[in-house]
Computed example of a mutant assay.
Amino acid sequence: MTDDAYLFLLNDLDEPAASLGVPPAAVGQLACMDTPAVRAWLDAQGVSATSAKLRVLPPDETAAIPERAERLPVPLSEEELSRVRQHSAPERIARVEEALLAYRDCTDGRDALLGRALAAGVPVNRIVELTGEDPAAVAAAAR
């Protein structure tokens, strides 16, 4: 396993790998695509950033890249990596991952919000009623 994601090119012999990875254009803007290194690599390969043969894989899946495929390691931000993983996952997994991301977004800052509610004088039982949180979790936010 590597810490870098990889851009790679499928060739005509890579039929079984055709579903491997995701075209970078499908995941939205990736900062690495605008770097001189990536542009030079694409030029050297004679392909554009929108080529159907161009794929990106997250670091934990790069071992699946066919040995003969042209490849280039690229750094991705956490947000970019999340998008690549989501787009390369089977649809049923992608839907669950979307729900998990939505959950994370709504719980971000939970303890701070519970603490603010307590500091404002909202009773613990009312916070529990409004949030569905465990009373012990609400009380712990006061610490």
Rank of each mutant, 00 (worst) to 15 (best):
L54E: 01
V47E: 04
V38S: 02
P90A: 11
I65E: 01
A99G: 07
G109P: 10
R39N: 04
A18S: 13
A17S: 14
L114C: 14
T107R: 15
V128F: 13
P135N: 11
D43L: 00
A17N: 12
Q86Y: 04
P16R: 11
R68W: 02
T107L: 15
E97N: 08
Q86V: 01
L20N: 02
R116E: 15
L100Y: 05
D34Q: 15
V122N: 11
T35V: 05
T107S: 08
L30F: 03
E78F: 07
P90M: 05
P58E: 03
S19P: 06
A40M: 03
P123K: 11
P58G: 06
E129P: 04
H87Y: 07
Y103S: 08
T50C: 14
R83H: 03
C32I: 02
E70K: 15
L57D: 01
E97D: 09
E98S: 10
L20V: 04
T35M: 12
R39E: 10
L57V: 11
A25C: 05
V27A: 09
P75V: 12
A69C: 11
A117E: 00
Y103F: 09
P16K: 09
L81K: 11
L42C: 05
T62F: 09
A17Q: 12
D60S: 14
I127D: 07
Q45D: 00
T107H: 13
E78G: 13
R104M: 00
C106I: 04
P36K: 07
L76V: 11
V124H: 08
P59C: 01
S51A: 13
A89R: 05
D34C: 06
V84S: 06
W41G: 00
R83Q: 07
R71N: 03
S51F: 04
E97L: 08
A102Y: 02
A69M: 09
E98N: 04
R85P: 00
P24E: 07
G121R: 04
L100Q: 15
A117N: 01
L76K: 12
R116V: 10
R126T: 09
T107P: 02
S51M: 02
D14L: 08
R39C: 04
A136D: 11
P66Q: 13
A17I: 08
P66I: 08
P24N: 03
L42A: 01
G109F: 10
E67F: 03
V27D: 09
L81V: 00
G121E: 08
D12R: 11
S48C: 01
P73R: 08
S19W: 14
V47A: 01
L13K: 15
D111Q: 14
P123F: 12
D60T: 06
E133V: 06
L130Y: 03
A119F: 09
A120F: 13
D60N: 12
E98Y: 11
